[in-house]
């Protein structure tokens, strides 16, 4: 209370917002029974609340998730990009080296490797997409 006669404006506001404890609430209600000024103040707060409530809620034009999922996926891929590109290059280099070392012996086994796909770690943002990140990066290198 600001003085012996009226509560402070912010206390009335807190009362109006239902933020006071039981004891303070009872004090305000006792005071307002005999105080026209504070009752008017509360009525004004009520009126303002009504005006504020009349403003329509802005509508979300489109859901957040699809765009967010796409953005996160791109970010994730961009972050992992250099590492995956390096890994892919290392795998290719190793393959070429092995191929050279094995020479004609490896030739007969070529068919067995056809259709084999390296599976990189699946992203939590993949949304069930079947392509692994490694595949994506390898295809980006084409």
């Amino acid at each position: 209370m600001s003085d012996s006669t009226h509560p402070d404006g912010y206390v009335l506001q807190a009362y109006h917002d239902g933020e006071l404890n039981d004891e303070a609430t009872a004090r305000i209600e006792t005071h307002c029974r005999d105080c026209v000024r504070c009752r008017n103040e509360l009525a004004e707060l009520q009126r303002l609340d009504g005006l504020l409530a009349d403003i329509d809620a802005p509508e979300l034009p489109r859901p957040v998730w699809p765009a967010l999922n796409g953005a996160l996926r791109k970010q994730h891929e961009a972050r992992l990009g250099p590492a995956f590109a390096f890994s892919a290059a290392a795998v290719c280099a190793a393959g070429i080296t092995i191929g050279i070392l094995l020479g004609p012996v490896g030739k007969s086994d070529q068919s067995s490797t056809n259709g084999t796909t390296w599976e990189g770690p699946s992203s939590m943002w993949s949304g069930g997409a079947s392509a692994s990140l490694l595949e994506i990066h390898l295809s980006d290198m084409d």
């Binding site: 809620a57 802005p58 979300l60 859901p63 957040v64 998730w65 999922n69 939590m124 943002w125």
Partner: peptide
């Protein structure tokens, strides 16, 4: 812990209030 469906549910629950707050 990486549960995408949980995050999606959470975002769908809160996207409208957050958007309205930001517009205001």
């Amino acid at each position: 812990a990486g549960d995408e469906a949980a995050l999606r549910t959470l975002i769908e629950r809160w996207e409208k209030p957050v958007f309205a707050f930001l517009v205001r």
